[in-house]
Simulated assay, not measured.
Amino acid sequence: MRAVISRVSSASVTVDGEVVSRIGQGLLVLLGVTASDGQREIELTARKIADLRVFDGEPELSVTEIGGEVLVVSQFTLYGDFRKGRRPSWLAAAPGDEAEPIYEAVADRLRTVHGLPVKTGKFGTMMAVESINDGPFTLWWEC
C-alpha cells in the first residue's frame, strides 16, 4: 500500500461537475493498493495516518488531536511504473474489484477505530481533486 499524505487547509473531490466530498483542515490521502495488500496494511496505514504528528503545536500534533478531517482518494496511479519507455505500466496496482474493499477498509478503520471524520472520493471515476496545502507539507508512506 502506498499513500501520499498532504496536510491541507481544505480539500475537495468533484465528479462530473458536482462536489462529492469536502474537508476543512486535515489530511488529504491519495491511496494506492496493490494485490498483496491485506488486513496488516490496512491497520498500519490507518494508524500511521491517524497518529502522524504534522500539525503545529508543542509537541507537534496529529490530525486526531487537532480535531481535523481526512479525505481519502483512491489513486491506482501511485503504482504506475514508467522506468521503461514512456507509457506507465499498471501491473503492480490491484484490480478495481480487489482494491475498492481495501480502500474502503482504510477509510472505515480511520472512522471507527481512530474516531476521525473521514470523507472519500468516488472509487473508479475520473475525479478533480483540489487542495489548499498547508505548508506545503506532503509525505510518502509505503508498507
Rank of each mutant, 00 (worst) to 15 (best):
A3W: 11
S6P: 00
S9A: 13
S12Y: 06
S12A: 10
T14L: 00
V20I: 15
S21Y: 04
L27S: 04
L28R: 00
V29R: 05
L31F: 05
G32S: 13
V33D: 04
T34L: 06
A35E: 11
D37I: 14
G38N: 07
Q39S: 15
I42R: 13
A46V: 06
K48F: 13
A50D: 07
A50M: 07
L52A: 13
R53W: 03
R53M: 01
V54S: 04
F55V: 05
E60C: 05
E60D: 10
E60Y: 14
V63K: 09
G68Y: 11
V73R: 06
S74F: 01
S74L: 02
S74R: 01
S74D: 05
F76S: 03
T77C: 06
T77H: 09
Y79N: 13
D81V: 14
D81F: 14
P88G: 08
W90E: 02
A92G: 02
A93S: 14
E98W: 06
A99M: 02
A99E: 02
E100M: 12
E100L: 11
V106G: 10
A107T: 15
D108T: 13
R109I: 07
T112S: 12
V118A: 03
K119L: 10
K119I: 00
K122Q: 14
F123S: 02
M126F: 02
M126C: 00
V129H: 01
V129A: 03
S131T: 05
D134I: 00
F137Q: 02
T138L: 07
W141M: 12
E142W: 05
E142I: 11
C143I: 10
C143V: 12
